[in-house]
Design a protein around this nucleic acid. Structure first.
Lengths: 253, 253
DNA sequence: CGTGCTGTTGAGGACGATCAATGACGGTGG
DNA sequence: CCACCGTCATTGATCGTCCTCAACAGCACG
C-alpha cells in the first residue's frame, strides 16, 4: 500500500478535531497494524458479521446498509476516510447485527481486535474522542431523520450530497466528484431510482452538477447548499478544530 | 413529589440493563437532588438552550424536536422515563443547539451540572453505561431512518407506536395508552396530520387501536407489530438484562 | 359562551412510484 | 475483433399514495 498513515491522514485529522492528543494518535496508529484491502462493491462487513473487531476506514468510501423485508436495500449512512465502521459493536456487541457495510470504492480498512480496544480506551482523552465520534455519528442520523420524508426530492438529494462533501472535506478529501451511483442515492434517500435519475437531471439542468455520466460531480456547491438549506453545524467541521482542547484542560484529564 | 426514585425507578432499571453496578446507581441517584417539574406542552429544554447541564427524564413523556425552515416541526425522537435528554451536549457542548425538548405529559426532570458529571464518569462502569446509552440512542435513529420515507403510512405509524410501547415497557411503564396527539405522530413520521388521522382510523378499523378519541390506545399489539414488521432487537430490552455483566468482568474493570 | 386546539371529513391535485423498454458502457469469452 | 452479458443510466406512460385546502365537530379553557 506504501502510503504513510501518519499525522496528516484523514483519521488523524478527525481524531485531533475530536480532542485526541498527539500521544493518543501515536498509540492508536501503532494499534492499526492490521490492514485489509476491500475492492469496490465488496462488503467491508457482511450482514450478520460477528467478529470481535473494530474496523476503521482509512481510505475510500463505503456505506452502511440494511436489507428490508421486501428485499430492498436501505442505506443508513456513508463512511468516508477516517470513519469508524462498527465502533458501536465494541460497546454493545450484538447491536444492529443486521447492518452491513459495503465499499463504494476500493478501500483500505484498519482492524483492531476488541481486546486491544480496552487498552486504547484506558487513555481518557482517547476514550472521550471515541465517545464524541459516536455523538457526531448520532447527530448525522438526527439531521437525516429531520430531512427524510420531508421536502422535495430535489432538497433531499441536494442535502445528502452537501453533507457528504462537507464530511469529506473535513478529513482532507477535496474532490467535487462523489463515488455514488444513482442506485446508491435512491437507497439512501428512500426515493426510486427513476426519480433520483430525474432529480439528478434537474440538478444538472440547474448547473449544480456536471453533465458527466456515470458520476456525480458537484460544480456549484454554494447553490446546492442553498436549495438544500444545508447548515453543517451538526458536523465536526475544521472551523471547530480546537473546540475540545479547553474542555479537556478544564476537566483536568 | 413524594415518590421514591430508588432502585426500582425507570432510570435504575435502564442503567442496570446498561451494565451499571449497584454502587454506581447509589452515586448517580445522590447526584440527582435537583429536580424540576415541567407541565405538559411546556419545553423541558428550549431551542438554543445553552445551560451546562444534563437533564434526565425521571417520569413522564417528552419529545425532541427541531423547527424546519418552512416553520414546520420535526420530531426526532421520543423520551420516556429514565431517558437522557441532552447527554450529547455534555460531550459536545454546542452540538445540535437548535433541538428542543417538549413535555407531552407532566414530567419530572433531574438536573446534573456538567461539572458534576466529571465525577460520575470517573467510575468506569458508569461511564460505559452512559456510552452504551448513547449507542442505543443512535440505534433508535438508525432504525427510524431505515423506515422513514419507505413503506406505507400504515407501516410507519404502526412501527413508531410499537417502538414506543417496547421502550416504555423496558422501563416498567406498562400502559397501552400512549400520550401522543395525532399532530405529534404527524411531525414524527413526516406525514400530514390529515393522513395520520386517516391512518389511525384504519388502524382502529383493523381493531388494533381503540376507538377512544383524544387518545392513542393500542388494543392488539401483536397484530400491530405484525404489520409494522417490528423487531425490537435494536432496543435494549429486558430480555438482555445481564448482557454486559460478563464483558465487564472480562475487561477487569 | 366565545376562543382555541385537536380531531374528522371531503374534494382535487401533485409528487413520486411502478412498469416497461431502450441506450450506454465495461468486461468476458469466443 | 466482435458477440454477449450485466450493470447503470435514461425515457415515457400510467397509477396511486399522500398532500393541500377547506370546512366543521367536539372538547377544554377562560
Amino acid at each position: 500500500m506504501g502510503v504513510d498513515w501518519g499525522i496528516d491522514s484523514p483519521l488523524s485529522l478527525k481524531l485531533k478535531r475530536l480532542g485526541a492528543q498527539a500521544d493518543d494518535l501515536d498509540i492508536l496508529l501503532r494499534a492499526l497494524k492490521r490492514r485489509v484491502r476491500v475492492s469496490a462493491q465488496d462488503d467491508v462487513i457482511r450482514e450478520a458479521d460477528t467478529a470481535a473487531q473494530v474496523r476503521i476506514l482509512l481510505a475510500g468510501t463505503a456505506c452502511s446498509y440494511k436489507r428490508q423485508k421486501d428485499g430492498g436495500r436501505s442505506i443508513l449512512s456513508f463512511q468516508h476516510s477516517g470513519d469508524f465502521c462498527d465502533l458501536h459493536r465494541y460497546i454493545v456487541p450484538d447491536l444492529d447485527a443486521a447492518i452491513g457495510i459495503r465499499a463504494l470504492t476500493d478501500c483500505i480498512v484498519a482492524v483492531i481486535d476488541h481486546r486491544d480496544m480496552d487498552g486504547l480506551l484506558s487513555r481518557p482523552t482517547l476514550a472521550s474522542a471515541f465517545w464524541r465520534a459516536s455523538m457526531f455519528e448520532a447527530a448525522v442520523y438526527r439531521e437525516r431523520l429531520s430531512r427524510t420524508g420531508r421536502g422535495t426530492a430535489l432538497e433531499r438529494v441536494a442535502h445528502l450530497l452537501c453533507e457528504q462533501l462537507a464530511r469529506r472535506e473535513a478529513v482532507g478529501v477535496h474532490a467535487s466528484r462523489l463515488p455514488f451511483s444513482q442506485i446508491d442515492l435512491a437507497d439512501a434517500t428512500g426515493l426510486s431510482v427513476v426519480h433520483v435519475n430525474r432529480t439528478i437531471q434537474t440538478l444538472r439542468g440547474l448547473k449544480m452538477l456536471s453533465k458527466a455520466r456515470q458520476a456525480i460531480e458537484v460544480v456549484d456547491r454554494k447553490q446546492l447548499e442553498e436549495i438544500a438549506g444545508f447548515d453543517g453545524r451538526y458536523l465536526n467541521l475544521p472551523a471547530n478544530a480546537s473546540k475540545f482542547a479547553v474542555r479537556i484542560e478544564e476537566t483536568g484529564d
